[in-house]
Write a protein that binds this DNA or RNA. Structure first.
Lengths: 201, 201
DNA sequence: GAATTGTAGCGAATAAAAAGCGAATTGCAA
DNA sequence: TTGCAATTCGCTTTTTATTCGCTACAATTC
């Protein structure tokens, strides 16, 4: 059954919200997230998507929406053969070893989401605008890890994490940029970076 | 099963308390931890969460709550929710939009393999040692694309591809390194780079 | 071209669930 | 057996979902 563009936006919002917060959104939160002014519209969307089998919910229950996993699925596209190592310095051999790699190798068992990077503050780490960072949702981080941090509950940023007494230092990896210092109480860790994914057009 | 915001707060408090203290909290401790004035409310929360299968407890027993680990029913790990954009420069917008991303978005229908990168010749493109490049198997390339090229049938290398008359210029992205020039007849394109994948230990 | 169907949207009124309270009661364990 | 913690009861408030009647548009069918 076909899905409309708007319906995809609704689905993506729902699964994003649930992943981010750990609970499903209310209709009002959905409405404001999608720029809608009427709960009736939200309700209609949810009902349509439920009829299409893309999500489940209990009648008249608050925050009871479950996005169903996308139907399975393309044939084995997810795991790539790893043919060997290539020298990006001196040209060396590309050996055809029989390993493989997939997103699952990065993700493991963890709860992971992706963020698109804007800006250059991690340039010296070779993370640049347009890259997708794969982030494990955790509330803690260890010294020196790259984290997604929320400062004063408002601004999300991608930096290396250091603890200095009762203060947190969020260190950009860009020689031209200064670190951010903030009281530990004002910094919320939203996750730590497990990997990155880059797509060339 | 979906969960409400308050229920998530309760769960988080319970698992936090148990982790910190090694034993589960009494209802009074839960109440004060959550800012509640009535034990009845606590009891209702616990009962609801138990009915949802998120925790276990013995009837009428003190401190007998066990938070169950989130059931990792996830099978299709390959698609990640894309929660939004994050500013890696100045801290800007918080997480808002939502789409999703997976290896399939990069791969599409093509025949793709992966190579592990060694060396620094693509450093200025932010492709560094240890990264995996995702390569479409193809024999042609367009001007300026990043390719895996075989020189004299022997040495594979990762460079940008330029045609200059009957010669090929293979251009490293590293200001300190010189380009490689070779007759077109001696250069075989093995594929072009669609994306990269990086894994942080 | 006209009628029909499905999607997308609005605002207001209604109904139900979730979340809360205080007080009384029950049941385990020391 | 007694004290503390868990349970239950009736009740209120807040939050959330549902429904109704309406407009508009685009695609499909008659």
């Amino acid at each position: 059954m076909a899905i409309t563009r708007r319906q995809k936006e609704v689905i993506d919002f729902l699964s994003g919200f649930t992943t981010k917060n750990g609970y499903s959104p209310s209709y009002e939160e959905i409405a404001s997230g999608l720029g809608l002014n009427s709960l009736a519209t939200v309700h209609k969307h949810i009902t349509n998507l439920q009829n299409k089998g893309l999500l489940q919910r209990a009648h008249n229950r608050s925050r009871s929406i479950d996005v169903l996993p996308p139907r399975t699925n393309k044939k084995g596209f997810e795991r790539l053969p790893l043919l060997g190592r290539i020298a990006a310095g001196q040209p060396v051999e590309a050996i055809e070893t029989a390993e493989s790699i997939s997103l699952g190798d990065i993700i493991g068992n963890r709860e992971v989401f992706a963020l698109e990077v804007r800006g250059d503050s991690m340039r010296d780490e070779h993370i640049v605008s347009g890259d997708y960072v794969l982030v494990e949702r955790t509330r803690t981080a260890r010294e020196g890890e790259i984290v997604v941090a929320l400062i004063d509950g408002a601004d999300a940023t991608l930096k290396r994490f250091y603890r200095e007494g009762s203060m947190i230092r969020l260190q950009p990896s860009n020689a031209e940029m200064a670190p951010i210092y903030a009281p530990a109480a004002n910094v919320t860790i939203q996750g730590k970076v497990l990997g990155i994914l880059r797509k060339y057009s």
